[in-house]
């Protein structure tokens, strides 16, 4: 299975939901579509499934153009955000649906349907629930039923819209790991939509970062974090501070902030052209030291433990900066000296 999206455009009235999207997914990949709400990720997913139609561009699966193929003939599994289970059918019948609606010639006999449904329910660890109605099971269980139902048609491609969005944090964590293993064991090709960067980076082989109807960068999680290709990606990932700056002679000076400038050696990634720039500094890229009263350039607003370090919020000339510091180094209200050890810079949007 391979998926190729080329120049996909979708307009909703005057608004561009998708603005010429290109995406190529290889068989067996686990891909995340990551972006803020309104960036077009769900629209893209729906168009892949045939639930929505392009104003321009093509979707190809294994080299075949899908534009004339209706959703029901695409054999693409879709797990809806709120599961969209058939509420009048038992768990068993929900999962059996895709087999029962097949044309008589290709419909498996009843015993075979039952065998396949039960095997899937066992695989999803919900074998005991087959007689229940969707309203009688928990959110995490519904998620598994929706997944089993989508997998019952042996899809070429599995699409998941915010698969963990409606679940609480505890269930979410467990289900995430489980889904990753399932994807690998069943040899699926999957795309999922999320606005949670942690989820995307942890689960996906590659992540397509979307902004305003475009794929800004499509890369491995490591590459996204290490080499963000655009200001949007650098700002969206990793909780970086977004600071106005100016680049001249290879030196980056922060505009309007009492921070020492950075030399070319401290700039990560490709240097932008000289002139107005946007600098991004991640929480772990700051150097912090306590200062005496009346000295230093920042003041500690709050400090709370976060794993092996303290998560510190600082006031830098009115701007809030988030940084990591060793436990016990800084107290709330204390003055301190703040300095960027390194940064990424991009040309400022005109």
């Amino acid at each position: 299975m391979s998926l190729a999206v080329r120049g996909l455009v979708r307009r909703f009235g005057p608004a561009l939901a998708l603005d010429s999207v290109d995406l190529a997914v290889r068989g067996g990949e686990f891909v995340a579509l990551l972006g803020p709400s309104g960036s077009g990720k769900t629209t893209l997913l729906r168009m892949l499934a045939g639930l929505d139609f392009a104003d321009a561009g093509t979707v190809e699966i294994d080299g075949h153009d899908m534009s004339a193929v209706p959703a029901r003939a695409r054999r693409i599994g879709f797990v809806f955000q709120h599961y969209a289970l058939f509420r009048h059918m038992s768990v068993f019948e929900n999962v059996a649906f895709g087999l029962r609606v097949r044309p008589r010639a290709s419909r498996p006999p009843e015993a075979e349907i039952a065998r396949r449904v039960r095997a899937l329910l066992e695989r999803m660890q919900i074998g005991a629930l087959e007689k229940r109605l969707p309203e009688q099971i928990s959110g995490g269980q519904r998620q598994r039923v929706a997944l089993a139902r989508a997998l019952a048609i042996e899809p070429r491609l599995l699409l998941l819209d915010e698969p963990f969005g409606a679940l609480d944090a505890e269930v979410r964590k467990g289900l995430r790991r489980w889904l990753r293993e399932l994807h690998a064991e069943m040899g699926l090709t999957s795309l999922f939509v999320t606005h949670d960067q942690e989820e995307a980076l942890e689960l996906a082989d590659r992540v397509a970062v979307m902004q305003a109807g475009r794929v800004v960068q499509f890369d491995t999680p490591l590459a996204l974090v290490e080499q963000p290709a655009a200001a949007f990606v650098a700002g969206f990932l990793g909780g970086a501070a977004r600071l106005p700056a100016h680049l001249s002679g290879g030196v980056l000076a922060f505009s309007g902030l009492p921070l020492p400038p950075l030399s070319a050696a401290a700039l990560r990634g490709a240097a932008p052209p000289e002139g107005a720039a946007l600098a991004f500094v991640r929480p772990h890229e700051w150097a912090l030291s306590p200062a005496a009263e009346g000295e230093g350039n920042a003041r500690v607003r709050s400090s709370r433990p976060a794993g092996g370090h303290a998560h510190v919020e600082l006031d830098l000339a009115g701007q809030v900066i988030e940084a990591e510091a060793p436990h016990g180094l800084l107290r709330p209200g204390q003055p301190c000296r703040l300095e960027a050890r390194q940064a990424r810079a991009f040309a400022a949007p005109s």
């Binding site: 045939g50 029901r72 003939a73 289970l85 609606v101 097949r102």
Partner: peptide, 10 residues
């Protein structure tokens, strides 16, 4: 959504 789910299931 339920009708769309039915469509994706064939």
């Amino acid at each position: 959504a339920a009708e769309e789910a039915a469509a994706t299931l064939g």
